[in-house]
Amino acid sequence: MSIPTEHPFDFDPTYGLGIEELRAIRPPEPPPNFDEFWRARYLRTLGVNPEPRLERSASSHPDWRVQDIVYASTDEFQIGGWLLLPRAGAVRRGLVVGHGYGGRDEPDFDIPVQETAVLFPCFRGLSRSRRAPISSDPEGHVLTGIDKPERYILGGCVEDLWMAVSVLTELYPEIAGRIGYGGVSFGGGVGALAIPFDRRIDRGHLSLPTFANMPLWLTLPTVGSGHAVQNYQRTHKDVLKTLRLFDAATAATRIQIPMLLAVARFDPVVAPPCQFSVANARPTSNHHETVILDAGHFDYPGAQEQQAQLSEKVRRFFGAT
């Protein structure tokens, strides 16, 4: 283990917690209408026709056929992204891949899957899905609509993910029931919110997931999107009423499919206690595995080795039938 000991932050990104203390953290209690809120959104999303439009991409790769894609999401939002199709072998599975709060400039060509149609959507307001007046800056994006739960941007991003699953099932009906999701940081939190309410998703990988354990998230110093929400809370004391409905750890307690979680002990952007709140929401078993990294959102000795080991686990996880 090589947790960083030197860093430029004016707070401790381990928050003074050891591994056993992190493993003991549990998700907060849900608000009374949590499940009803998300089930209604999911049913409403299923009524939207994604109308995917594909074009040959300027990007190319020897292992993948690359297509640019645009599809319709809720609120008449057009979502842009990329679709990768294997040059060798049939399409036997589907995978939706989320992104961090930095957005995405291109698909991840090193994703360790085969015989898989891989859809890389850009969530609304970010990268290929930019639209005024939504800020593409994380500290502005995370506040969009935060005063109205039905209009909060995170809910729209969850719907974009559900619509991505609809796109894959429309393009490749034969893979229905064999579609996974993988997301890191921002995409990890969005995935935790989306997965339990969409039974079309059969397995999920969440890495460094954010938006978890909101009562704690609002109190821990950070340089991530949580910092903007903490500043907002100073003049909007009731913001937790909205955030409790968007708690990734609360949602994770409802996940019933196989999961591979990756969480960090040191992270200045997504506080480790919040990450572990997601990982601890489901018991470790043959169907749920948690990988503990030394650090997240920060370079550290051994990072390449740990990421290589995680990549191999991801390959085996999404290669399972």
Rank of each mutant, 00 (worst) to 15 (best):
T210S: 15
V263P: 01
P32W: 02
Y15T: 06
R178S: 07
F246Y: 15
A320I: 00
Y71E: 06
L95F: 00
N49Y: 01
R282W: 09
P30T: 08
Q306A: 13
R234A: 14
D247P: 06
G177M: 04
A308G: 08
T290E: 04
R199A: 14
V184R: 13
G145Y: 14
A251H: 06
D110A: 14
L43I: 08
G89C: 05
R254I: 03
P13T: 08
P196Q: 11
R244I: 10
C122Y: 03
P112L: 08
G224P: 11
E76L: 10
T116V: 05
Q307N: 10
V167N: 05
F123L: 15
W162M: 09
G319D: 00
C122I: 00
V66Q: 03
E36I: 07
P86C: 09
V270F: 08
Y300P: 00
R244E: 12
Y42A: 10
Q256L: 01
L85R: 14
D202I: 02
L143F: 12
R199N: 12
Q78P: 04
P273A: 09
A308I: 00
I175E: 11
A295Y: 02
F298S: 09
D299T: 02
A164Q: 02
V270Y: 05
R265W: 02
P4Q: 05
R203G: 03
E139Q: 10
R178L: 00
F77I: 12
A40D: 13
A88Y: 02
V91H: 10
L171N: 06
F9A: 02
D105L: 11
I3T: 15
S285E: 09
P62S: 13
D110F: 08
L83A: 02
W162G: 07
V190Y: 12
D35G: 05
L46P: 11
V263L: 08
I255F: 02
R316Y: 00
K313A: 07
Q256R: 11
A117E: 07
P268V: 10
R254A: 08
F37W: 08
F276K: 07
L143Q: 10
T5S: 14
R65V: 15
G189R: 13
P133D: 11
T219G: 01
R131G: 07
P268I: 08
E289R: 15
N213T: 01
P107I: 06
G98W: 07
V142A: 09
T14P: 08
S285P: 04
C274V: 05
R41S: 13
L154K: 12
A90F: 02
R65W: 13
R282E: 02
F37K: 05
W82T: 06
T250M: 03
I69N: 09
L154S: 02
P283G: 05
F109L: 08
P86V: 12
E20R: 10
L168N: 05
G102A: 14
R234N: 09
L84A: 07
A212T: 04
P273Q: 07
P121M: 04
E76H: 13
E170R: 14
I201T: 10
A248W: 01
F109W: 09
M259S: 03
A303K: 15
Q304Y: 01
P86E: 06
T284P: 03
D10R: 04
A40V: 11
V229M: 08
Q275Y: 02
L216F: 01
E106M: 13
G89N: 08
D68Y: 03
A88R: 12
